[in-house]
Amino acid sequence: MSAPIDQAVWTNLIEMTGGDVEFVDDLVDTYLADGERQVAALREAAAGGSADDLVRPAHSLKSSSLNVGALDLGALCRALEESARTGKVPDATQQVTAIATGFDEVRSALLAERAERAAG
């Protein structure tokens, strides 16, 4: 598996904000806080067995992940969203677990990047 954060998208994000790293830090915090909520919502939906309830959290986590450069996580979310839209997700629990793991890796990578920046 490649790095949790795509370097090109990440660089682009920083450029988009005009190099305002404080804002990027804020943005990352927003992403992480919301991401945690979406992962929790996915877990609940998988446990409840409702494919419908998977759609929105998967969709939401997908779009913010893609923007933050978490392309693999975004792809996982997209796959889940698509199958959830069909109404049947036999391996929902497995998919959600993969997403949760992916999100944890993304979080570690983002926080490590911030720590590096602070140190460097």
């Binding site: 988009m16 904000t17 005009g18 804002f23 804020d26 943005l27 927003t30 992403y31 806080a33 919301d34 929105r56 939401s60 779009s63 913010s64 923007n67 933050v68």
Partner: peptide, 16 residues
Amino acid sequence: DDTPFNRQLLARLLRG
């Protein structure tokens, strides 16, 4: 947008 990340980023870019 219901995703806070998207709102925050778009708002920032629009302000810019």
